[in-house]
Design a protein around this nucleic acid. Structure first.
Lengths: 310, 310
DNA sequence: GATGCTTACGATACCCGTAAAGATA
DNA sequence: TATCTTTACGGGTATCGTAAGCATC
């Protein structure tokens, strides 16, 4: 049993049991992949894969049990390297943060600026992605830290922490009739076509919940992934927009007016997540502290430790 | 990085940083051991060991952190093999139970008999040892299951379960004056020389606590590891004996009388322990169920899972 | 001087990749 | 037929063990 064999087992599952793809992904020959799998199966004395003739179809029962252990072992192998770099490279390295448009555009810039100043030799990579993709990138080890308002909570294999709270705001073109309304209400809002986020993005859940609770069915004429697109179409008069409050800036967004909507939609909690059992470099903890000073290294390490194996 | 290197790292610590011993323990050459360690240190870019010239003295800070990950990886490697055997060998294998004299002699025989009948192809090994040694054997992976009344609780890296409760009894030679006493008391007992277990064995703690709470200082003239030795010397008139109740049998121990002592000493709880994160074969769970039917596989697996990494 | 670690070097076994053959859709 | 897996085989490399050299105690 060696690490290459374990990597091949993991990759075989990830690549949907196509050994040619596995070989490509691991930069090796497909004959070697095939042989390694057979060798491992022979050494262990069990079949790890269901086969139909020469095709691999899926994992056997022992294969499934083995896979979970293999995943942990390869994660540990990665952890060892990270740990070594932590001591040998200290302030050099790479930090991958997977996050949504809203965070990347309106929240993280000051954090990133301060981080880059503090750790100039760390290569900071921002992966902009959907909440679901962020989860995948964390689980696969592609990303070290994930930040999003949706999807991060309650995913097995991830630990997430509340990061900050924010609310939606309503935007309309200057001179819109709603702008005169001293106290905006949901029924008033629902009389206009609505432009807002896609489902599963940037607190869209809270928006739908609010309308549903009021028994309203707003006419959502357009959904977008980010506030910039929404603002563009609100300016064109397509409808009223509902966006994250921090995405609106009076100075920048001339021609638009933001209306207070704190009383209409429940607050959203953006969460910050890391993979369970994933060894983080020291500067990763510093990045998290820059985001939310309350999340100190010891707190996060403690949570991760508690949850290992869950 | 390969498994041999990791095994060598672990063994180097276990053997007190003597590479010659490491080579012997792993059945390989000492030059290879030396080279493997250097190769690994070079690959990781850090020093794992403190050196004074050519001698290894101990782990460095990164070495210590690495060791804990290495231990888990090697445990996982072992788990993979166990897991494979579970499917390929089913009812064959080896089960090592580390336990004390008292359990081995007076409690486990019926369990062992039933287990052997149910799993004739499993090699059942009983390691008789002191509670402290049992802990060591569990932690090192030498033993699969540990059973003892002392020491097993609260050891980090082990999970233990209460197994059953029992009490001490007082034994005296036939015709001894204490035998006429209708209600035995601690002061009465303390007037005679006492023969009982060594400290750290078979509930000795409870005995000491009881006397201390009563402000008594009994004259312990002899301590032994097991009840058979104690009985022998009580028969010779050396003193009164305090032993585990299940170690006395009127039919077998002629010449001795057991006196009720339930009201004198607190009850003892014998515990059953397994190593955290250690994959157990199916028959190991069956053995545990034979000991204590309430401890089903799911319960133990659940506890182990909860505690991983603690 | 005894013990213990490192380096050098030759034999071996293992791993990888090319190529051909066999199986599946 | 095109895709995919297995088997066979040769070249390269890494690992292992012997032996010698050199610190440490």
């Amino acid at each position: 049993m060696n690490f290459q064999q374990l990597r091949i087992v993991r990759e075989t599952v990830r690549q949907g049991f196509n050994l040619t793809e596995v070989a490509n992904a691991l930069y090796t020959s497909q004959s070697g992949v095939s042989k390694h799998l057979k060798d491992l199966e022979e050494e262990l004395g069990i079949e790890l894969f269901h086969r139909k003739g020469k095709r691999l179809l899926g994992l056997t029962e022992p294969g499934r049990e083995l896979l979970s252990v293999v995943e942990r072992m390869l994660l540990d192998a990665h952890n060892i390297r990270q740990l070594a770099d932590e001591f040998s490279k200290r302030d050099q390295g790479r930090l991958v943060v997977a996050t949504t448009h809203t965070q990347a555009r309106y929240v993280l810039p000051p954090v990133v600026a301060r981080f880059k100043a503090a750790y100039p030799r760390v290569q900071l990579v921002l992966h902009q992605a959907s909440p679901a993709e962020i989860v995948q990138q964390l689980l696969s080890g592609e990303a070290d830290i994930g930040i999003a308002t949706e999807s991060l909570d309650g995913v097995s294999g991830l630990i997430s922490f509340p990061y900050y709270s924010w609310q939606h705001t309503v935007i309309v073109p200057e001179g819109h009739s709603l702008a005169d309304d001293p106290a905006l209400s949901l029924p008033a809002l629902a009389r206009f076509p609505v432009v807002t986020y896609h489902e599963g993005f940037t607190g869209r859940t809270r928006i739908d919940e609010a309308f549903a609770a009021a028994g309203l069915h707003p006419d959502v004429v357009m959904t977008a992934l980010d506030a910039d697109v929404i603002k563009t179409y609100v300016e064109l008069g397509l409808g009223v927009g509902i966006i994250a409050a921090m995405a609106f800036s009076p100075a920048r967004d001339k021609g638009l007016v933001a209306l207070d909507a704190m009383h209409l939609f429940a607050p959203n909690t953006t969460r910050l997540a890391v993979r369970n059992g994933h060894y983080l470099r020291g500067f990763a903890y510093r990045f998290i502290e820059l985001c939310a000073p309350a999340l100190e290294e010891e707190i996060i390490r403690g949570e991760v430790r508690k949850a290992v194996g869950e």
